[in-house]
Design a protein around this nucleic acid. Structure first.
Lengths: 345, 345
DNA sequence: ACCGTCAGTGGGAGCGCTCCCACTTGCGAA
DNA sequence: TTCGCAAGTGGGAGCGCTCCCACTGACGGT
C-alpha cells in the first residue's frame, strides 16, 4: 500500500501528489507553485500548472488548513436580534463588498448568527482554536464582550461602526457627523427656519454622532440652540411616530425634521399626515441610511447614504492586512457619506 | 519528540490527545464521546466530558474534516445579481432558519456569492472536492447549470423555489398558487368585480404560478376570463408602473389589482396616483412577498407572505437528511402562504 | 471448567497538505 | 582547478483528528 503512491484521494479527486507525479516534480515544488512562491523556475511552474489543469486539481481545504495552521476562512458575526438589519440594502451591500474582497484572496466567508451573549463567548472560544483566521463584526453594542474576547485571544478582527468616539478596536465606519451636517445644511438651504431632529437610541454612538452633526450644522449657521426641537427616538418607526407627535405639540411651527433613520422618518411621516401637515410643503423630511423604504415612501424620502459596499471592502482589506501581520496604520477608517435628494425635502 | 505526546497543539490549544491523557483513556474513546457513539460506558463518558470541560477543549475542525472525509460545512449560494434579494425580509428570514438548523447540527454556513455562470461552474468543482458537505441554492434560474453540475457530482443540494411544475431537483417552495388564490378571493370578497393582475417575469416559474392562481380563483368564482385584465411585468417597480398604465388604458373600469410582487405593486400604486385613482377607494391593491416596502407604502399594502424562516429550516433539514444518506421521501416540499391584510384592500 | 460472545477500549495508520532541512546544480570568484 | 554560494528541488515529518482492527475481560450457556 505504501508503495502505490500517486493515487487519487479518497473522494476520487486528484491530490497534490498526483500533480507532482504528472509534472515530474516533487510535492514540495507543486506546493510552492500553488502558493505562488518565487523560488520556482519558470519552466517548472509552467509544467506544474499544466498538470494542475489536466487533472482538474483543486487543493483540499481541510488538509491545507490543518498543515498550514490557518483556516482560509473568516467569520462574519451578526447578532441575531439584529437580523432585521439583514433586510436592509445596507447589509446586502456590506456583504457584497466583503465577498468581493474575500473572493480575490480565496478565503471563505462563514456566516454566524449569534443569538445570545453566551453564544458569542462560545464563538470566541471557537474562533480562538484556529477555526477562523479573522472575524468581521457588525452591529456591536457597548456591552458586547466579543471584541475584547477576540482581542485577548489575539484573533484579528475588524468591526463595522464604533462604540464611542475613542474606539480603539479596529473599525470602519461611515461619517455620521458629516452626513447629518449635510442633511441639515440641505434643509437650511431649502429655506427651513426651524429644523427639528428625532434621534436614534441614545446608547448608540451612531445616534450620538447624528445628533452632534445636527447641532454642529445649526451652530455653524448661527441658529439658536433650541432643545425643544430635539426629540428622542430609538431608530424604530413607532419611536419616530411618538417623537414626531411630541415635537408637533412642543414646536408646532417647525418646518423641517432630520431623522436619525429612515424608519424613524416613516413614523414621523405618519404622525405628520395624521396632523394634516404636507410633506414637503409644510414640513421637509430627511432620513438616514437610504434604506429600501426611503425610495418607496410617499413622497420618496431624502436620505443620507453610506458607501456601504466600500465599507465592506475596507473592513475586509483591513482584516486581511491584520491577518497578514501588517501593523495597522490607524485603528479606524471613516468613509464619507452622501445625501440622496428626493421629493420629501 | 515522538515520545512527548500529550502536548497541546501548535496554537497552544488542547488536543484530543491531551483530553485522553487527562481522562486516563485512549484517543479512540475520546473521539467516540465527542461523536456521541453509544459504545462508551457511562462512567467513561462522564470522565471524558469532565476532562473536556477542564481543558476547554474544542475539536479542531480542519483535522476532523480531513480525517473524517467531510467538511462540516454547507454552502449557501446566492447569485450576485440577486443580492438585492438580500435586502428583503424574505432573505433574512431564510438565512435565520438555515442558521438555526445548522447550529443545532454544529455545521458551518459558508456564504458564496457567485457573480457569473463560469463562477458557478467553478463553484461546482470546488464543492465536489469535499470542501462542503452540501449546497443550499436560492434564486435559481432556468438556465443555471449549477443544479445539474451538483447532481452529476453527487453533491447533496436543495433549492429554494422551483424552476418548473415538474421540478425533479430537491426543493422547498412556498405555495404560490394558493397564495394568489387567497389574494384574489380576498379582493372578490371585498366586493371587487373587475380584478386585474400584473404578472412577474414570464420566464420564472413563480410568476407563472401566481398567474395560475389568479386565473383559477376567477374561474372558481365563475367570472369570465378577460385577458385584457392581465398585464405583464417583471417583478420590478418600473415594470409595475408600465403595466398599470397599460391596464388603466385598456380596462379603465377595473377596481382591483393583484400584483406578482410588492415592488410591482409599488409601481402600480404610483401609476394609480398619477391617474387620480384612490387606493383602496377606487382600486384595491394586493402584492406578494410581504416585503419591507409593503408595510411602508401609503396605504400599507396587503400582501401574501411566505413562511420564510420555516422554508430556511425545511431546506436545511432536507439537506442534512440528504447528506446523512437518507432517501428523500419526496423531491420537494411546498409550504403554505398567508395573506397579510392591510389598508390597501 | 471451558468456550463463545460482545460491550468496551487502545492505538496504528493515514487523511492531503505545508514546513523545512538536506541536497544538487550551475556559476562566478579565488 | 577548487571552492562558496544562491537558486532550485525532493521528500520526511507531522498537523489533529477518525477509522478500524485487535484486544481485554465479564458474563452466560453447556
Amino acid at each position: 500500500m505504501a508503495v502505490a503512491r500517486q493515487r487519487a484521494g479518497r473522494d476520487g479527486r486528484p491530490t497534490l501528489e498526483q500533480v507532482a507525479a504528472r509534472a515530474g516534480v516533487g510535492r514540495g515544488t507543486v506546493s510552492r507553485v500553488i502558493n505562488g512562491s518565487p523560488r520556482v523556475s519558470e519552466r517548472t511552474r509552467v509544467a506544474v500548472e499544466a498538470a494542475i489543469a489536466d487533472l482538474g486539481y483543486v487543493p483540499h481545504r481541510a488538509a491545507r488548513a490543518l498543515a498550514g495552521n490557518r483556516a482560509d476562512a473568516v467569520a462574519l458575526v451578526v447578532p441575531e436580534p439584529e437580523t432585521r438589519l439583514f433586510a436592509e440594502p445596507y447589509f446586502a451591500a456590506i456583504i457584497r463588498g466583503i465577498s468581493v474582497e474575500l473572493a480575490e484572496a480565496d478565503i471563505q466567508l462563514l456566516l454566524t448568527l449569534s443569538r445570545t451573549a453566551s453564544e458569542r463567548e462560545r464563538f470566541a472560544q471557537y474562533a480562538a482554536g484556529n477555526r477562523v483566521d479573522g472575524v468581521l463584526l457588525v452591529s456591536v453594542h457597548g456591552e458586547d464582550p466579543l471584541p475584547e474576547l477576540l482581542a485577548e485571544n489575539g484573533i484579528p478582527a475588524v468591526m463595522n461602526g464604533r462604540r464611542s468616539a475613542h474606539e480603539t478596536f479596529p473599525h470602519v465606519d461611515g461619517d455620521n457627523v458629516g452626513g447629518s451636517r449635510a442633511a441639515v445644511r440641505h434643509l437650511l438651504e431649502r429655506g427651513a427656519t426651524s429644523v427639528a431632529t428625532i434621534t436614534g437610541s441614545r446608547d448608540m454612538y451612531a445616534a450620538q454622532c447624528r445628533l452632534d452633526g445636527y447641532r454642529e450644522e445649526l451652530d455653524a449657521a448661527g441658529l439658536a440652540d433650541d432643545e425643544g426641537l430635539v426629540a428622542h427616538g430609538d431608530f424604530s418607526e413607532e419611536g419616530g411616530y411618538r417623537a414626531m407627535c411630541e415635537l408637533l405639540g412642543r414646536r408646532p411651527a417647525l418646518d423641517a425634521v432630520f431623522c436619525a433613520s429612515d424608519l424613524t422618518a416613516a413614523g414621523a411621516r405618519r404622525a405628520l399626515r395624521e396632523a394634516g401637515r404636507d410633506v414637503p410643503g409644510d414640513v421637509a423630511l430627511v432620513g438616514f441610511d437610504d434604506s429600501a423604504i426611503a425610495r418607496h415612501m410617499d413622497p420618496p424620502l431624502t436620505s443620507v447614504r453610506q458607501p456601504t459596499e466600500e465599507m465592506g471592502r475596507a473592513m475586509t482589506r483591513a482584516l486581511l492586512a491584520e491577518i497578514a501581520g501588517e501593523a495597522p496604520t490607524s485603528p479606524g477608517l471613516i468613509l464619507p457619506t452622501e445625501l440622496v435628494r428626493r421629493a420629501s425635502s
